[in-house]
């Protein structure tokens, strides 16, 4: 299947449902090394993304992601707001005004999202952030797409890679955000941003399956 307006909207809808279901888990992870508001912030941000989509009535998948990003930036409240908001907006802009895209274009959009997060936050792989889930996911998505695989297979590979990336954040010491003040005491916990990224990519795999 191709990635069109309906699929893009379904993705954000599924992502919002996923963070709502796992709100307590995200908040628990954040309470361990952050300020304990990531679950509530993600629910508020993605709900605002959905509201903005409903209000604007976007007609391309790119516009859906831009609309979601604007809602997320406006309402999330924590650092996840500008990071995810910029990621979705940059991904949406990368899709241009196409009414439907295939795996290669969606992979390029996910890479644009990764670049946006790196530029804005100044973090890289190994800093114990959402990048540790997103970077391997983008690589996995693009590897499947480069072999001519469909979006469903690429998204499934990306979700698996994100979950592995999340697990790999446990032994890392945080070098960005509030958790970095904890130094070595940030070791031994999953990064909440990587956890929400894994949920969002699993949602993409589910709606494209």
């Amino acid at each position: 299947m191709a990635f069109d307006t309906e699929t893009a909207t379904a993705w954000i809808t599924a992502a919002e449902a996923a963070v709502k279901t796992d709100e307590a888990r995200l908040t628990g992870l954040d309470a361990a090394i952050g300020d304990g508001d990531h679950g509530a912030n993600m629910v508020r941000g993605l709900a605002a993304g959905l509201t903005n989509i409903a209000e604007r009535g976007p007609t391309t998948p790119g516009d859906v992601l831009v609309a979601a990003g604007r809602g997320i930036v406006a309402k999330t409240g924590g650092a996840a707001g500008p990071l995810y908001g910029s990621a979705f907006r940059r991904a949406g802009k990368a899709l241009g005004d196409a009414s439907s895209v295939e795996a290669a274009e969606l992979g390029a959009a996910l890479e644009a999202a990764l670049t946006a997060i790196k530029e804005l936050g100044g973090a890289d792989e190994g800093d114990k952030t959402m990048i540790d889930a997103l970077a391997p996911a983008v690589a996995a998505f693009q590897a499947v797409a480069a072999d001519g695989g469909p979006i469903a297979a690429a998204a499934a590979a990306a979700a698996d890679a994100a979950e592995q990336g999340l697990a790999a954040t446990v032994p890392l010491q945080a070098r960005k955000g509030r958790a970095s003040y904890l130094g070595a005491r940030s070791i031994g916990h999953e990064d909440p941003g990587a956890a929400s990224t894994a949920l969002i990519l699993r949602a993409l795999a589910e709606v494209t399956a």
């Binding site: 930036v73 650092a79 707001g81 990071l83 908001g85 910029s86 804005l120 955000g177 509030r178």
Partner: peptide, 13 residues
Amino acid sequence: MGSSVLTAKTLLE
């Protein structure tokens, strides 16, 4: 700090 900086950078963009 933190989201204050990221949000201000986003506004600048």
